[in-house]
Design a binder for these strands. Structure first.
Lengths: 202, 202, 202, 202
DNA sequence: AACTAACCGAGACGGTACGTCTCGTCTTCGC
DNA sequence: GCGAAGACGAGACGTACCGTCTCGGTTAGTT
């Protein structure tokens, strides 16, 4: 049983409080957005959530686990678009990445701070990988593969490195720029270079 | 005057001890390599360097400042190669980036840890930018420009985004992979995609 | 509620540890005896007591408060003798003062050091007054008053100044002599002078 | 040569500055009066005197030595009165002790603070003994002896304990009272008790 | 209805590190 | 060589959090 599986009702005794669980997650997310990973302390979360520290450690086995779950609600799952046009679908997914950075946290600077904070430990890095990268990488991959099938993208393309390039440039742009990432900052600038690489050979 | 400008002999009183200054930097670098930014404490540095904490705070105004300077000696300046062949020169610089990651710190995992640690604060991020990115970006830029002049690289290329892509993918590869970056992991994989974008149109 | 009132079980949360509380007091007393007020540091107490510094600050709001309480267990309360003979009773109390100096701290030099240390601050001086002087002064006063009633001490005596003289000479003897105070050093020497002043006029 | 013997002009080089020496003593005395022994730091003295710390340590080998000398100018030497009336002479000397406490330091509270501070270390205690007690004890002793010769004081008196009682009660009164000592507080209160002990038996 | 197991909050626990302070000493320059 | 300025190693200060532990008191679902 996962430590945070508070819903499981096999075991005896008083069940975990959903209210507390939720309050902790909310407090965590708010602190994360306002102060970043760095400025988050368990004691701070406990106070903000009106909860004992023990309760937090009962639900999550570490600070990192808590942050992981809270980050999950920022970089939520995505749907994979399928309009029949691979280029459009790619653009949709990539735009979605920008939106996460700018919208999900209210303040765009917050996303940068959080992202940077996730580098603090291998565990948190894995959170970023699992919660953010993997779903998007999968989406891109599927779209590209479909695009290749449809002849919209040239078929000798090496998909994984391409996605790494896109993901890396996203990551880099988010972290290194002082301003929030915009479509023009990132997508429009990399497009010409990437496009040459994926445009179907005629 | 910078707080760490211990050499300036305008001011009266006992001059800052070069020996202590150096011992602190060395201790910092060693701790950084072994334990990462996260595992570095001022008290640890002081003890390892055989120095009082006050001396550290006298030379650097914060932990970040100290790390910045110590990082500088890991990601040292580079020379810009000029063999007449832009592609070769680019490869040299990019190989150099891999070497920094793998050699400068003895342990390749260390570089990943340090790099991640530098994301902890905007100040440290700037250190990475200034100490690592800017010199390499400048090198790449010069080489590309010369390559364009010589007709080795097509001239409608948008240089800055291209370099961002390369830098981002480097950064991403270093951080996201569990193993040290190798030429094959990174350079050989991105080459085909990048090359299509820069190869001269004939 | 006093900060050190760890016994009160009105408040929620884990109760203060009596074991730690006691260990701190013991360590404090031992350090006090060995090194004096001057040589006592909170960190030293914490280490000797096997306790975190925070625990000390949780139980006592300052170093002075801690010393005050620790001193209390050196200069403990006294019982007021009542044998019917005021002169004997006085002698008992005064001998008790000598015993405190010589016995309670194991080493007589220690009492001198501690007493001197208590002069360091008005707060500590008050501790001495409250913990040491006041109870003894009260005892002497009661005995003298009873002695006057019984006609053992002349009734026109001015009690307070007399006690001041006795207390002062005690204090002075403890502080100024290099050796521990003995009955002969102090009590026997002042007796003739005092006695003349208190012997009943016939 | 005493370390503070700045006047000696045997040795080569720049002579010690009387100006600095004096400034240090003055600053010390002023800080002593205002903040007590406790509140005096060498760094504070250096700054107030406009002098380097080294200079202080060149003139006095320790903080205690400096305080000793500065205290000397507060509890200055006394003259031994000899009016032919021992009781009058005693009163003069004792009044002088009160004056030292109240006048020499401007603020009477200061004397209490300084006196308490002198208990901090055996060295300082010796300063008090040597600078303050010994001269006054000698004066009292001489006067009493002359008084005995003249038949003004009874001759079976034990002089030393008597003086201890007087000195102790002075010391005690200064330290324990919150207000400055006055003639009435101290001298007038102890007189009746002491007098009975010294009045000549007729 | 009583029992019991796991929850809850509050807050204490031993620790580590922080950045600041002052100690008494050391080291340089310029008079 | 003295005097000033100020750096030096040392170590204590009181504070902030860490992750754990310990209370009295809930809150279900068994018996």
């Amino acid at each position: 049983m996962k430590i945070s599986d508070y819903t499981s009702r096999k075991r005896p005794g008083r069940p975990r409080s959903k209210r507390s669980h939720q309050a902790i997650l909310t407090a965590t997310r708010e602190i994360l957005v306002e102060f970043g990973v760095h400025g988050l302390s368990i004691e701070g979360v406990a106070e903000k959530a009106g909860v004992g520290k023990t309760t937090i450690y009962r639900h999550w086995k570490s600070k990192e686990d808590l942050i992981a779950e809270a980050f999950g609600s920022i970089a939520h799952e995505i749907e994979i678009p399928d309009t029949g046009n691979a280029i459009n679908d790619l653009t949709t997914v990539l735009n979605g990445m920008i939106e996460v950075a700018n919208d999900a946290t209210q303040s765009p600077a917050a996303f940068k701070k959080i992202l940077a904070g996730l580098m603090e430990s291998p565990a948190l890095l894995n959170v970023y990988k699992k919660q953010f990268i993997v779903p998007r990488r999968n989406a891109l991959k599927q779209i590209i593969e479909k695009g290749i099938d449809r002849g919209q993208i040239r078929k000798d393309i090496d998909i994984d490195p391409l996605i790494d390039i896109v993901g890396g440039s996203y990551f880099y742009t988010v972290l290194m720029n002082d301003k929030p990432v915009t479509v023009d900052d990132w997508l429009e600038r990399i497009k010409p270079i990437i496009m040459d690489g994926i445009a179907p050979n005629e």
